[in-house]
Computed example of a mutant assay.
Amino acid sequence: MPLAQFLRPALLAATLFSGLALADPQHIKIGINDSPQNAAIELAAQLAKEKGIEVEVLSFSDWNTPNLALANGDIDINYFQHQPFLENAIAQNGYDLVPLAYGVENKVGLYSKKITAFNQVKDGDTVAVADDPVNQGRGLNLYQRAGLITLRDGAGPKASLQDITANPHKLKFIELPGPQLARVLDDVTLAQSYPSHILAAGTADPGSALLFSQDEANGHLYALRFVVARKNVDNPAVHTFIDIFQNDPRVRTAIEKAYGNPKLYALAWLPAQKEAAR
């Protein structure tokens, strides 16, 4: 069954499980990355105690360990990746992981502290993109939309540097892990980055990107997912935690406060947005 098909049944299950009274305290571990959403995750973990669930939040510094930890049973759920990243991780490592529900969709943008318009790019300038095969394609498509490069026809969201067919400014691309891109703005002319990482790093105004992604057309393909190992698909504590994150107004307020700008994110689980993903 395609991964996306797990999302709609899981969202229904979240509603069913949220009403269950858990007789014995349960303990679950969730793996996350550095993000403004962490405050909302921590709040949801605190609120879960009211329903008899102890949630331990573990923060990872890279984008590979959270899936390895999930596959090994070291954590029960993770929340840091969109579906293309998950599918790539499954294809490369054979993980038996399942996306349960949508989370927040982070925009991605092209940021600069050296220029204010793309026509100011000079020949030979150094620019940065993500080094993983999924997010690199997302960044390269932004560079193409900016008119700085041309990609091979059909390269799509999985484009790589090898798919560049025209680079008139002879830009020098450096590849970096996603979380590090926000920290190199002083060293490059342009960098692909998430507003959430820019906000966490404090290196620029998250809303100052020269160009933002337009992922709504992709059915929120890049919204983060709550992901579990298959054995935890029906874990009521996991579903209750997700339900708290998605529906408790206090968590919603924490998300709004963390981003400070509604243009930087979308709540992909809301009915109108879920419909676009079908």
Rank of each mutant, 00 (worst) to 15 (best):
V134P: 06
N141Y: 04
S193G: 13
T240V: 14
I77K: 02
N218E: 15
H220D: 13
S18I: 00
W63S: 09
Q162L: 11
V121I: 15
R278Q: 11
H220M: 11
A209L: 08
V227R: 06
G73D: 10
A159D: 10
Q83F: 07
L68F: 09
K263T: 02
P133R: 00
V227E: 15
N88I: 00
N232L: 04
G139C: 15
D125C: 06
D131N: 14
P271Y: 07
D205A: 10
F85R: 01
F85K: 03
G139E: 06
D24G: 07
V251Q: 10
S61K: 08
Q180D: 15
N247H: 15
P236A: 00
L68G: 04
W269E: 03
K263D: 14
A13T: 04
V238F: 13
A48V: 03
G207Q: 03
E256I: 05
R8Y: 15
V98P: 12
Q180G: 02
A159S: 14
D62G: 05
E275R: 01
L185W: 05
Q192P: 09
S112G: 09
K274E: 10
P271L: 03
P168I: 01
E42Y: 06
E175P: 04
D187E: 13
Y265F: 13
A217G: 13
F173Q: 01
T126I: 12
Q214I: 00
F241V: 00
F212I: 00
A159C: 11
D24S: 09
K158G: 12
L11P: 05
P179E: 05
I242L: 11
Q120C: 07
A89Q: 15
L185Q: 07
